[in-house]
């Protein structure tokens, strides 16, 4: 520290100054002792959680990156060989990968777009509902939130399935739907059911995030707009939505990252048939089903990179302030 070199000028003044200096130093030392103790305690308390989180993610992803550089098939362990970036070349030069990525993005975009609208409507309903109804409505929408995704996938699958389903009978009046419509035989119809089940299951989550955002909109602003003669739609558009933009952005980002990792519904409903394969399923089938650890790890790493990219784009381009919106500030 630079404060040590105390200039010696006049004797009396300098003594006083020196004493002052020393007191300050003691103070600082005491304070830094306390700070140090506090940060030690802080890390003692928070450290285990931090270490566990790193251990269950950072280590495996590092291992995946390492494995992705090898040709390694579990049922032929002797043939393991270092092959550099070949696995990545194989994956990235294959049209299958890009098709799968496209399908994953399509599911993500459609599902999240519908969910935001639907979730917003649900949030408005819950926000405005009279107290007696609020509990009932919340309880109802928490059911899809809490239900196991696999269960929801089966429920939707059986409803639409050509032999066990009732949808074809019920909706026979809709053009294009009749008892011979096999929903899981075409890409479009399979994706429709997959996306519908995804929307059903996760809209409650997004609507709760938006509900919290709605609560942040100052009521005075809305009232003022009402006095000015703004219609309901104008108020929504000019006052409510701009004021909860941050909440919407965060909700969209979180759901998008979640939807991008979709797996359960596709696994149960089509298993990837009719070009409905998604990235997570491709990674699973390669490494877990084919036991091609090397190739599968490469896909896993690419999936991870995609998630980071989405996050990066959202934060840099759309200025989503995750930390701020999540309570850190």
């Amino acid at each position: 520290m630079s404060a040590q070199v105390a200039p010696a000028k006049g004797s009396g003044a300098s003594e006083a100054a020196a004493e002052e200096e020393a007191r300050k130093r003691r103070n600082r030392a005491q304070k830094s002792d306390r700070t140090r103790a506090e940060s030690r305690l802080g890390w003692y308390l928070a450290g285990p959680a931090f270490v566990v989180m790193l251990a269950v993610t950072a280590y495996p992803i590092a291992q995946a990156i390492f494995d992705s550089l090898f040709r390694f098939r579990l049922s032929a362990p002797d043939e393991r060989a270092f092959i550099g970036l070949t696995n990545y070349v194989v994956v990235l030069s294959d049209v299958v990968f890009w098709r799968v990525l496209g399908v994953t993005l399509l599911i993500t975009v459609v599902a999240v777009a519908v969910e935001v609208v639907l979730g917003f409507a649900l949030a408005l309903v819950m926000h405005r509902a009279i107290t007696q109804l609020r509990g009932l409505l919340r309880t109802a929408i928490l059911v899809p939130y809490g239900i196991i995704t696999v269960v929801s996938a089966f429920a939707w699958f059986y409803a639409f399935d050509i032999s066990s389903g009732f949808v074809n009978t019920w909706f026979a009046w809709v053009p294009g739907v009749d008892e011979n419509l096999n929903w899981f035989a075409n890409m479009g119809t399979s994706l429709f059911v997959i996306i519908a089940s995804e929307i059903w299951k996760t809209t409650p989550f997004i609507s709760l995030l938006l509900l919290a955002g709605l609560a942040q909109v100052p009521t005075e602003l809305e009232e003022a707009a009402e006095v000015d003669g703004a219609t309901w739609w104008q108020r929504l558009n000019r006052v409510v939505i701009p004021n909860m933009k941050a909440a919407i952005m965060v909700a969209v980002l979180f759901r998008a990252l979640d939807a991008f990792r979709i797996f359960d519904n596709v696994f149960i409903m089509t298993g990837g048939a009719n070009n409905t394969e998604v990235l997570s399923l491709l990674a699973y089938r390669t490494s877990i089903a084919r036991l091609e650890i090397g190739l599968g790890s490469a896909i896993s790493v690419l999936l991870f990179v995609c998630v980071i990219l989405i996050c990066f784009i959202a934060i840099k381009l759309f200025k989503v302030d995750l930390a701020g919106a999540r309570g850190e500030k």
């Binding site: 995946a64 494995d67 877990i288």
Partner: peptide, 17 residues
């Protein structure tokens, strides 16, 4: 931030290792 990063982590990426 770590908690945030872990929560968006693709599960399938770590399941193989």
């Amino acid at each position: 931030t770590t908690a945030l990063a872990v929560s968006i982590f693709p599960v399938i990426s770590i399941v193989t290792p």
